[in-house]
Amino acid sequence: MLKDITLGQYFPLDSVVHRMDARFKIIITMLYLVMLFWGQHVISLIAGFVFLILALICSKIPPKMPVRSIKPILPVLIFTGTLNFFAMKGGTIYWQWKFLSVSSQGIQTSAFMIVRICLLIMGTSLLTYTTSPIALTDAIESLLSPLKKLNMPVHALAMMMTIALRFIPTLIEETDKIMSAQKARGADMESGGLIQRVHALVPILIPLMVSAFRRAEELALAMECRCYHGGEGRTRLRELKSGMRDYIALGITLLLLAAVIVGNILLSRT
């Protein structure tokens, strides 16, 4: 049930994408997002699609995985889809009732939005599939390090993120277990009205909170035992290194982005 959520789960394989420098992967993902959201033309979606397929092939991740990552956001997709479908006006109007209408513009926008969000989720989930959470936060720390000059506690923030990411699967597993245990005592979580359902969450949330605090305390102790005292003078086991493949990947992405920008300018002129 809860285990089916795959968003943000590392999928260890040996591929070019997995070996890439995490900093580059983050930058490339950001460029990919810019690519998707640049303008209102189909060209940005085509470019995004091409990019996604390329990345998928290079990463050796089974295509099922990113597709499955869409499942949790299905309600959002349906919501934005229908909203745009009925609320947008423009172009040929096929059907109208009070403020609701079905128009060619509406159909187009809603299809556009759905494809865009799907590409967005699949692309970003690819980043987390191919990059371990540790590498990811290391990269974020490295990318944000210029902010240290502004007295931002970059290392502490990155460490907090690492810990949070590290504990998501653990807590999901724990929630599953607590839910089963309370169900075994007859807790009813599937029926009843909203208030009853919220009430039914108490037996799950309280043990979960308690266990989160317990884990936090244990972790703090363990870190202290290993003399952790912040980022000052800390060295890394895995240094971030960039190489040829990172520049090539960045180059391809920039090329696609440029194609989108140029395409947009050309298409909006006509």
Binding site: K177, A181, P203, P207
Partner: peptide, 25 residues
């Protein structure tokens, strides 16, 4: 069914209420 480490499922204010959770359901 008593799960492994069942003490992690305790949640009520008092032991009495927690034991009563099942029968109440």
């Amino acid at each position: 069914l008593v799960f492994q480490y069942p003490e992690y499922q305790l949640f009520e204010e008092t032991v009495y209420k927690d034991i009563a959770f099942g029968p109440k359901n």
